[in-house]
Design a protein around this nucleic acid. Structure first.
Length: 210
DNA sequence: ACATTAAGTGATT
DNA sequence: AATCACTTAATGT
């Protein structure tokens, strides 16, 4: 855990801040599928992802979901930053995409460290910028791509964050993340398999050339 | 062997 | 691309 932390964060912060992060940050390990934040929750911590990955979801009135993007090691959640500046409640849901290790930083510290450390200020702004880019990308994907292109992008992203082209997932789960129906996903996957791009098995999709 | 859940398919809108 | 209705396949008990 410490080696992963050092690898992702050591070069970003000065010694003093690193010490503070490690002493104040609350270490937390979550298993795949665990919900970290839900919509409406009050946000008390900002997570620094040490390793693993987190899926960020949006939800409509009916409770149907839409996957926005993944957060990986070295990343943090921009929502928490927004929360410090105003409303303290979450607009998104965060679920561990795989087994993940985190350091939970109390939101109060985000502000304190902004004044105290230049490197922290840079980090926060940089993270915010990156999330914003991801969000724009997510919008583009939804607005401009066909469902089959969205599906391919989804599979590709999923393979990347899990560092594995053998994806453990049901068609129903994919459908829920893409906000479409299972039947549509099954058909599009079947078509991709016919093209030789993937290989399908129960509960898993094997990416061959995407 | 049976029940349950995942995935495949034709037809319709 | 969504929905319905139905079939077939895989898995758990």
């Amino acid at each position: 855990m410490l080696s992963d932390f050092n690898f992702n964060y050591k070069h970003l912060f000065e010694e003093e801040l690193l010490t503070e992060i490690l002493s104040i940050g609350e270490y937390r390990k979550v298993n795949e599928g665990v919900e970290l934040i839900d919509i409406g929750n009050e946000i008390k911590f900002m997570p620094l992802v040490i390793n693993g990955a987190i899926k960020i979801l949006r939800e409509d009135e009916k409770g149907d979901e839409l996957a926005l993007y993944f957060i990986e090691q070295g990343d943090t959640c921009a929502m928490t930053i927004t929360c410090c500046l105003g409303s303290a409640r979450s607009n998104i849901r965060a679920i561990a995409e795989r087994d993940t290790e985190l350091l939970m930083i109390p939101v109060q510290k985000i502000e304190d460290w902004m004044d105290k450390y230049k490197s922290w200020q840079r980090f926060i702004l940089q993270s915010y910028h990156e999330r914003m880019q991801e969000l724009l990308e997510a919008i583009d994907t939804i607005a401009f791509l066909n469902m089959d292109e969205r599906l391919q992008k989804y599979l590709k992203d999923k393979a990347i964050v899990n560092k594995n082209e053998l994806i453990q997932v049901t068609h129903k789960e994919i459908a829920s993340d893409l906000h479409t129906s299972r039947v549509v996903v099954s058909r599009l996957l079947k078509a991709l398999e016919k093209k030789g791009m993937i290989k399908l098995h129960r509960n898993q999709v094997h990416l061959l050339e995407i």
